[in-house]
Design a protein around this nucleic acid. Structure first.
Length: 295
DNA sequence: AGGGGGACCTGTGCGC
DNA sequence: TGCGCACAGGTCCCCC
């Protein structure tokens, strides 16, 4: 469940429960996901304490420390691919699954694809399920930003390094559609198909417009639109977290409403517009937009 | 060098 | 009810 807001929701949901905990057991049900697990993955994780659980783009990062020693930390990196999901089974029965998503398979189906199981020192069990196995995990020694997975990522879209000036620079000479540029994780990292469609709709820019033909004024609208769309989705995820906290994990489906994504044929939701939402395919992926509002 | 298309997987939902 | 096809949040890799 992959875009930045869902990954951030997973991070927020799990962080307070796993930070400070020691990993007492790691079980792998297979030797690979998208890539093989690194050598001695389970052995290297076992006994470590989870100090911080953070996010970079769509990656989750756990900083692990060996107890009673001050060696440099080890970083556990994971990416959810398209269908990865974490479940936390707590000893008091307050189970939780943060960050569910509209296209998820059922919980029962996900159960059949649990590939990793961590037991923590408070008795909680953290599982990772991933039916399509596009997700992956790695262990990183030293600075995680130097990892080959993170080294080439562009700035965080919600951070200070992302603004209209840098996006304008990135668009110069780019003959591909603006949509493709926004999906390029080396330009800005964390956006995916859904929120790019939503942000382009919100800022009135056609997904087909070539990046080199998007003027400064449009980019000045696009950047805050991206931020607004992501923030709203994170807040919607946060509201589901509260539902989960009060339940046994069966409630709180991710209810974020999309304005254009997956709404082909529906009437455009902009005031006074009676056009219908179109779907086209760009670089093999669906784009949803209003050809009247977006130019 | 940049960009497009295929590959990696399984599940789901639709039309016939 | 069953079968086949299209499609799904991502990104890596090859080839033009």
């Amino acid at each position: 469940m992959p875009e930045l807001p869902e990954v951030e929701t997973v991070r927020r949901g799990l962080a307070s429960h796993i930070e400070g905990r020691q990993i007492v057991d790691v079980t792998l049900n297979r030797k690979d996901l998208r890539f093989p697990f690194p050598d001695n993955f389970a052995r290297r994780m076992t006994g470590m304490r989870i100090a911080h659980f953070t996010r970079r783009a769509k990656y989750l990062l756990a900083e692990l420390h060996a107890p009673q020693n001050s060696e440099a930390p080890l970083y556990w990196l994971s990416h959810l691919g398209m269908t990865g999901r974490y479940m936390l089974y707590q000893p008091d029965g307050g189970n939780m699954e943060p960050g569910q998503y509209a296209h998820d398979v059922s919980a029962e189906t996900a159960e059949k694809h649990v590939h990793v199981r961590l037991t923590l020192d408070d008795g909680a069990v953290l599982t990772y399920a991933d039916p399509r196995r596009f997700g992956f995990m790695d262990l990183v020694d030293g600075a995680p930003e130097a990892s080959s997975f993170l080294a080439h990522l562009g700035p965080e879209p919600l951070g200070n390094g992302f603004d209209a000036a840098m996006l304008y620079a990135a668009c110069q000479g780019r003959k591909s559609p603006i949509k493709n540029v926004l999906l390029d994780q080396t330009v800005v990292s964390g956006l995916g198909n859904i929120y790019v469609c939503e942000a382009l709709y919100m800022s009135g820019i056609s997904p087909r417009r070539l990046a080199c033909n998007v003027g400064r004024a449009r980019l000045e609208r696009l950047v805050p639109a991206i931020r607004t769309v992501l923030q709203a989705a994170i807040e919607a995820g946060g509201s589901t977290l509260r539902d989960f906290a009060a339940s046994d994990g069966q409630l709180g489906y991710f209810q974020h409403q999309f304005r254009v994504y997956d709404r082909e044929g529906e009437t455009c939701s902009s005031d006074g517009c009676h056009a219908s939402v179109k779907r086209i395919v760009q670089s093999g992926r669906s784009s949803f937009f209003c050809s009247a509002c977006q130019r």
